[in-house]
Amino acid sequence: MLDLQEQYDKIYRYCYFKLYNQELAEDITQETFLKYLEHYEFTSSETTLKYLYTIARNLCIDEYRKQKPVSTEDIAEMPYEDNIIDNLSIKAAISKLSEEDRELLLLRYANDVGIGAMAAIYNISRFAVRRKILAARKRLEEELRKEDAYE
């Protein structure tokens, strides 16, 4: 029992921040749901998310292989609506993080994915998930300090 309205936005966001292309992100999002609905519809809530994100990730990886990877400069250049000083430094900081860290932060803070679901997605323990998130946060804070130091 998938809440399509809600999950569409979240998977789309996940794909967008991997591909940095709106059209493509939406294509992949739709393909993800079609695959999911074909095979995995009645799974429990935690495995639902696992399947969704796994399918989405694999489809994104297939896309990567087709085109050149996005560079850090490209990420930093992504246009945003607000231009508050706050956002500029976080933009720069996050763009310096690894792909893995960015993904973790997106899942946890932007998509509100629960610890249990994340553990299922990465196939690691809940403890390990918490540890990874904390570590990613720490690295982000470190980058932010460096950014703020320039100002």
Binding site: Y8, R13, Y16, A25, E26, D86, I90, L106, A110
Partner: peptide, 21 residues
């Protein structure tokens, strides 16, 4: 910080959502 992270991950709105659903 949580809030700022969330703000960072705001994607441009999807265009074909209703159509797809």
């Amino acid at each position: 910080l949580d809030h700022r992270i969330k703000e960072y991950f705001k994607a441009p709105a999807p265009k074909r959502k209703e159509e797809f659903i």
